[in-house]
Design a binder for these strands. Structure first.
Length: 489
RNA sequence: GGCCCGUUGGUCAAGUGGUCUAAGACACCGCCCUUUCACGGCGGCUACAGGGGUUCAAAUCCCCUACGGGUCACCA
């Protein structure tokens, strides 16, 4: 009898993102998660979030939470895994120790693995000697064929064993990578690697494989830094006679100095961008284009469009430098397309934090805030910029520089300013921005002055600055009383 | 250092033997719009790492060199 559900799953594409919770979600991790997600969705498969926390020292629940938060913020949602559950759980490696144990015993029983009683110091000494001889620093296999007698003796000494994989000698290990093609390694360069630490916790290279086998992962998309680990993992798949997934090693994201992006390159975690007021859609769009290119000339994509167009074949082999200018460009574009209401909502926390108003005031002045945001919307690269751009609306700025001071000292300035006030006071209802624009134009005509002689003094007298939002928008937003106050009239 | 991966303009990149005197985007520069700045529009600059092959034909295939990166843990 055919088990329908089982059969269905056999043919289902399943991908996972498996971060270790040792810090916030890194920009490179976000891209890995995205590519996995896009491919899984494109193939109408599953996207699983698994936590690789076998490094007890560095893992923390806080990090796990922050990674999940970042993924949710980005809109990369998983349908199986941590918090969501699923039939292949648990999804945290420290909760799967028994699962690993079962396979360790199998490997041990079949002779694919053995216990090694060498101490860390002994291994380190061995490595130093090998390095001095310019040979590969791999384990020399001292415990490979240990006798029971010797083993008893070692245990009596109080030694705690690690478990090593017995790597075959003189074998070629071939990876057929979906982005890199055929990559070949020699087993002799791998050596007998540790699969279980002396504390009984399996090591990453072993745990991933067992998880990927038992969770029926079909495609492993991950950073290129894992390529060198893959031969070890393949050896384990083969020892266990398990089906290998399709591997796809995507290139790294580099800093401007062309080394792997790290903290010294500036913001590397997703939450930094979130805090600066980058939009998740913009970050996704940017990340997708870093190492992947669409078939056509489209530059802006939402998640659905990315899912529809994504393919592993179009993932680039070469590493990509993180180009903040381009991110800024994309983000600014997304900000311009935001509704004023939505942007205002996003901006309020920044305005409150800057001390311009209280939350209660923000709520009460929502309409006014929207007018203000509308005046500065296309000057923003990220939402954080409102702090700078909006400041003029709340308080008069200092006269920016000497040039500004000189412009303000022109003989015609008082005429211009009184003329402006007169016009603003002459109308019964507060004029719309375009009317204000006309008024200012008329001042130039009436006084026979150049545009600059009119515009700049008004701007500087009202804001202290030589540049900023459109003057008519600005006047419209701050209102007559504030204009008079700033002009000391 | 060994092993592995990579190398098209400052950056992201298209290009899978002829359609390449090499697309597009960011950045930069210039012009227009705007009585400033910004936004927007238009235009410009700049690239197949080098050397050997293979082929009628190479950015595209092969080899070597150079350069860059990754990895060599009881980290993931």
């Amino acid at each position: 009898m055919i088990n329908l559900e089982e059969d269905f799953l056999e043919n289902r594409v399943r991908l996972r993102f498996a971060p270790s919770p040792t810090g916030p979600l890194h920009i490179g991790g976000a891209r890995s998660a995205l590519f996995n997600y896009l491919y899984a969705k494109k193939m109408q498969g599953d996207f699983i979030l698994r936590i690789e926390d076998t490094d007890l020292e560095r893992s923390s629940r806080n990090s796990e939470e922050s990674i999940k938060d970042a993924l949710i913020w980005l809109g990369i949602d998983w349908n199986e895994g941590i918090d969501k559950g699923g039939i292949y759980g648990p999804y945290r490696q420290t909760e799967r120790i028994e699962v690993y144990n079962k396979y360790v015993q199998e490997l041990l029983a079949k002779g694919f693995a053995y216990k090694c009683y060498c101490s860390e110091d002994e291994i380190a000494a061995e490595r130093t000697i090998l390095e001095e001889k310019h040979e590969m620093p791999i384990y020399q296999g001292k415990c490979r064929n240990i006798t029971n007698e010797q083993e008893k003796f070692l245990i009596a000494e109080g030694r705690k064993p690690v478990i090593r994989f017995r790597t075959p000698i003189g074998q070629k290990i071939i990876i057929n990578d979906a982005v890199r093609g055929i990559v070949t390694f020699e087993s002799d360069g791998v050596g007998d690697f540790i699969i279980v630490k002396s504390d009984g916790i399996p090591v990453y290279n072993f745990a991933v494989v067992i998880d990927d086998i038992t969770m029926k992962i079909t495609h492993v998309v991950r950073g290129e830094e894992h390529l060198a680990n893959t031969p070890r993992q393949i050896l384990i798949y083969e020892a266990l006679a398990a089906n290998k997934p399709i591997f796809a090693h995507i290139s790294l994201i580099l800093g401007t100095d062309r080394t792997k992006m790290s903290k010294r390159h500036g913001s590397t975690s997703v939450v930094n961008y979130q805090n600066d007021g980058y939009l998740p859609e913009a970050l996704i769009n940017f990340l997708a284009l870093l190492g992947w290119s669409p078939d056509g000339e489209q530059e802006f994509f939402n998640l659905e469009e990315l899912i529809a167009q994504f393919s592993l074949e179009r993932v680039a082999k070469n590493p990509a430098v993180f180009d903040k200018d381009k991110l800024n460009y994309i983000n600014a574009k997304y900000i311009k397309e935001l509704s004023v209401e939505k942007l205002t909502e996003l901006a309020i926390p920044y305005l409150v934090k800057a001390g311009y108003l209280t939350e209660a005031q923000a709520l009460a002045e929502k309409v006014w805030l929207m007018k203000m945001i509308s005046a500065i919307q296309n000057r923003l690269v990220c939402v954080k910029d409102v702090v700078e751009e909006a400041s003029l609306f709340f308080k008069m700025g200092k006269i920016e520089n000497e040039e500004a001071q000189e412009i303000l000292s022109e003989r015609t300035v008082p005429l211009v300013l009184t003329s402006l006030i007169k016009k603003l006071e002459a109308v019964a209802t507060w004029p719309e921005p375009l009317e204000i624009k006309k008024m200012i134009k008329n001042i130039t005509k009436e006084l026979g002055l150049g545009g600059k002689q009119v515009f700049m003094p008004i701007r500087i007298a009202l804001t202290g600055k030589m540049s900023g939002p459109e003057m008519h928008d600005f006047i419209y937003v701050i209102g007559l009383e504030e204009v008079k106050k700033r002009l000391n009239i």
